[in-house]
Simulated scan of single mutants.
Amino acid sequence: MSLVKEPVISISGLWMKYSDKMVLRGIDLEVYPGQIIGYIGPNGAGKSTTVKIMLGLVEGYTGTVQIFGRDISDGNTDYKKRIGYVPEVAELYDSLTAREYLGFIGELYGMKHTEAEDKAKRLMGLLNLEQAYDMRISSYSKGMKQKVLLISSMLHNPDILFLDEPLSGLDANSVMVVKEIFASLAARGKTIFYSSHIMDVVEKISSRIILINGGDIVADGSFAELRERSREGSLEAIFNELTGFDRYRDIAGEFVEVIGEGDSGD
């Protein structure tokens, strides 16, 4: 007899209001170990708010949010030791070296400093950054900084990873490596919960895609399931259909027309 897995994230009746605008409208969601969740939607749909609530960064919501079976509103922050987070825009301590920064992050999660430094050095090497380990982060390219952020989120071996545009700034080879890392972590029972506006990436790496629009979940399933329901060929087309954004060709055409105004063609 197989055991039914308990959800690592359980959200029930989640409502959130900023000033006079309702951002989340009764979100119900359960996420299980080993799932790679692509959480997508237009800007302002409520994606970041949902994630920040789960991280304990936003209060004032109504409803229930449980992580690892415990209500996060009880004041106990121990669950945070078991999660990793990469925001879309992160402020790194640029004056530190990667050794110093990652050692510091590791200690925040309860790792011994020497253990964190050693582990970070090996992970940096695997992402072709070993030579930059003792260089100041201020000298890094965007892609190098993104790799350091990804390492910092996984250094302590978390059970849930929350990631916003995790592949931002990475070259093609690094994207392949990071996608494989996510798949391997999921195979070990880790949960990846990420947001991205790059639909082909979401389509390829997600085991489950959740589309939120106007504070409501309007689609939830694998890419194959979403495609079957909408009869569209790509996730981008499904996204446009479900969010009602069908003027992109018209807007692009008008944009190009404006660019060309005043051009005599001589």
Rank of each mutant, 00 (worst) to 15 (best):
I209L: 13
I105S: 05
K179V: 02
L108Y: 04
I210Y: 09
G189A: 12
N128K: 12
A172D: 10
I198K: 09
L150E: 12
S95T: 11
K147E: 00
A183W: 05
D200M: 02
I137S: 02
D200Q: 13
D216C: 06
D159R: 13
I212P: 15
L127K: 12
L126H: 12
M111W: 06
L167Y: 14
P166M: 12
K142D: 02
H156K: 06
Q146K: 08
K112F: 06
R136K: 15
Y109N: 07
D216G: 03
A132P: 10
S206A: 09
M111V: 01
P158Q: 04
K147R: 03
V202C: 02
M135P: 02
T191V: 07
V89F: 03
M124V: 05
I198F: 09
A98C: 06
L92T: 01
I192W: 01
V89Q: 12
G143T: 12
A120S: 12
D164S: 08
I198T: 07
M144Y: 14
S207Y: 12
R99C: 10
Q146W: 05
A90I: 02
Y133M: 06
K190E: 12
M144G: 08
Y140G: 07
E165D: 14
G125L: 03
K119C: 03
M124N: 08
I209Y: 13
G214P: 02
G103I: 09
I210E: 07
A172M: 14
L129N: 00
Q131M: 02
S141I: 01
G106P: 01
K179C: 03
H113C: 00
